[in-house]
Design a protein around this nucleic acid. Structure first.
Length: 255
DNA sequence: ATGGTTGCTCGGCAA
C-alpha cells in the first residue's frame, strides 16, 4: 500500500496535478492539506472516475483537509477530542480529518502555522499540538499514521538558513518539544530515514530553484504502522514548473 | 527590517 501526504495549496487549482500524481505513483491513499475548498466545491468526477472516495472538511478560503482513498474510507472523523479552535469554528475544524483506509487509521493534519511568536496564533498552535498529543496517545495500539503539514522544522538542518529563522516560528524550542513529545510517546517519524531533503519551498525569491526550503511535512506512525514501512520519498519534481504547490508530496510505502 | 509570490476573490489576508 502507498500512502501520500501533500499540502496542495488549493485542490481546485491543482486538481489536474493531483490526478496525475495519483496515477504517476500508483497512490492508494492521499492526505491533503490546504484544500481551500468547501465540500460542495470539491472537483470529484476525475477522482471518482479513477476509483477513489473522498472525505473532506474545509472552507473556501484557508485551511482545509481531505483524504482520498481507493482502499476504503470508513469511520470518518472531523477534528479530534478537545481540539481547540481559533476564530472561525469551520476553519478550525478544517485542520484534522481522520478515516480508516485499508485498515490504517490515517489522520490528515494541518498544524496551525503560528504566524509570529508573539501572535496569539502561536499559543494556539502549541495548545493544538498538546491536544492532538493527548488524543493520539490513545491510538498507539492501532495502525495509526499522523500525516501532514506539521509547520515545525524539528532540526536545524531542516531549514535552509537557520540564522534567518532566529526570531521565527517553526523552529522554536516549544514547537520542537511539542513535536518531540509524539516521538517520546511512541510514534516514529518514518520518512526522514528514506527521504532526506526539504518538503516546502516559498514561492518567492526562487526558493525552489535554489533549494532553499524547509522540511515540515512528516508521517508519524504508531509502532505497528512504522514496522510496516519499507520506503519513502519526496516527489520533488511535483514542486517544479508553473502551477506547482509550494509543498512537494511525501510518499510512504507499506508492506 | 523589508520584500518577494500565490490563492481566493476583487480588498486584504494568510501562508
Amino acid at each position: 500500500m502507498r500512502i501520500a501526504t501533500w499540502n496542495v495549496n488549493s485542490l481546485r487549482s491543482r486538481i489536474d496535478r493531483v490526478e496525475a500524481f495519483l496515477e504517476r505513483h500508483d497512490i492508494d491513499v492521499l492526505a491533503l492539506q490546504e484544500t481551500k475548498a468547501r465540500e460542495d466545491q470539491l472537483p470529484l468526477m476525475g477522482l471518482q472516475g479513477r476509483g477513489y472516495e473522498v472525505a473532506a472538511a474545509g472552507t473556501n478560503q484557508w485551511n482545509g483537509v481531505a483524504i482520498i482513498s481507493r482502499v476504503g474510507l470508513e469511520d470518518v472523523q472531523v477534528g479530534f477530542d478537545a481540539m481547540p479552535g481559533f476564530g472561525d469554528p469551520v476553519a478550525a475544524e478544517a485542520r484534522a480529518i481522520g478515516a480508516v483506509c485499508g485498515g490504517v487509521r490515517l489522520w490528515s493534519l494541518y498544524v496551525p502555522n503560528g504566524r509570529k511568536v508573539d501572535d496569539p496564533h502561536y499559543a494556539y498552535k502549541l495548545a493544538w499540538l498538546g491536544a492532538l498529543r493527548e488524543a493520539a496517545r490513545n491510538w498507539l495500539g492501532e495502525d495509526t499514521a499522523l500525516v501532514g503539514d506539521w509547520n515545525i522544522a524539528p532540526l536545524d538542518e531542516d531549514v535552509f538558513d537557520i540564522a534567518q529563522f532566529r526570531t521565527s516560528t517553526h523552529v522554536t524550542a516549544p514547537e520542537r518539544a511539542a513535536f518531540q513529545a509524539f516521538l517520546e510517546d511512541g510514534y516514529a517519524e518514518v520518512t526522514r530515514a528514506h527521504a532526506p531533503g526539504y518538503t516546502y519551498w516559498d514561492y518567492y525569491r526562487q526558493r525552489f530553484e535554489r533549494d532553499r526550503g524547509l522540511k515540515i511535512d512528516f508521517v508519524l506512525g504508531s509502532p505497528s504502522f512504522a514496522s510496516r514501512v519499507t520506503g519513502a520519498f519526496i516527489d520533488r519534481d511535483e514542486r517544479a514548473g508553473a502551477g506547482a504547490s509550494d509543498h512537494a508530496p511525501v510518499v510512504v510505502e507499506l508492506d
